[in-house]
Design a binder for these strands. Structure first.
Lengths: 137, 137
DNA sequence: ACTAATTCTATAAAAATAGTAGAGTTAATG
DNA sequence: CATTAACTCTACTATTTTTATAGAATTAGT
């Protein structure tokens, strides 16, 4: 399941993607349009900025805008940024690999292989969903 | 990601699946073989029992055994039993549907459709992984 | 009766999540 | 250059979920 953060991030990105090119949106606008607590959204937008998904303009008449193309922001990206690994266990993860503390031998682990299969399929599916594809629905 | 409970449940089921037909395994055996805290495993086995995945025999020489066929226990089943919805948001879930509190109109939600696509693909993949298929690896 | 196992309920400790507060910084404008 | 309106940053708090643990009750074989 997605955390609220990830969900809010997606909703914010969808909002930004629907604005005119070069338009700058204030946090409060996004918060009200997408029904997100404003102070919470501030943090989320900063995270999106640090991930180079959005850009910002400071000061009066400042705000946020999409930095990457709608086509280049996938569900997988946002999941990883806010919720971490896409794999079902850290030992099966590409980007967030960690051995299981209860695992005696990873190579003999019966679970890991199956979970890596799932990861590959889920990842492929999630990389197929972009902000652009969502807006078009 | 899977919770420890779900991971431990899978490991316990894998252990049971590898025993001889009609063999009964004590909790302590499973716990030691799979490196799971015994008292925690007790709860998990009870949940698996309530889900009709394992059966138990009480009293001296009691223990647990697989009730369903290895082929009929899927990763999707265990995920749902311990970690709930497979969908990324409750509003996109088949078995754990709930509307989002922040959603003003579900029919106009741009996220939901994409998440239902992901759910269908993930679910299909997870239903393809059975205890039996894991043991064979 | 004794022993060894599951069953059940309650509790506790730790971690993660969700959200809030408030001071600081930046930039436009008159 | 003061004012205003925006983003930025750090810290904190409250809640919920997760991960167990404790201990009494029940069951059944010998």
């Amino acid at each position: 399941m997605l955390s609220h953060k990830a969900k809010y991030a997606l909703k914010a990105l969808l909002f930004l993607a629907q604005q005119d090119e070069n338009h700058i949106s204030r946090t409060i606008e996004i918060a009200e349009a997408a029904n997100i607590p404003k102070k919470f959204l501030e943090q989320i937008l900063l995270d999106l900025k640090r991930g180079h998904y959005v850009g910002s303009k400071q000061g009066k008449f400042g705000g946020y805008y999409l930095l990457k193309s709608k086509n280049d922001i996938t569900l997988a990206d946002i999941h990883r940024l806010f919720d971490g690994a896409i794999a079902l266990l850290p030992c099966a993860s590409l980007n967030f690999y960690e051995p299981c503390s209860d695992c005696t031998s990873e190579s003999e682990c019966l679970l890991r292989h199956g979970l890596m299969t799932i990861r590959d399929e889920t990842l492929k599916a999630m990389q197929g969903i972009t902000i652009s594809s969502l807006v078009k629905k």
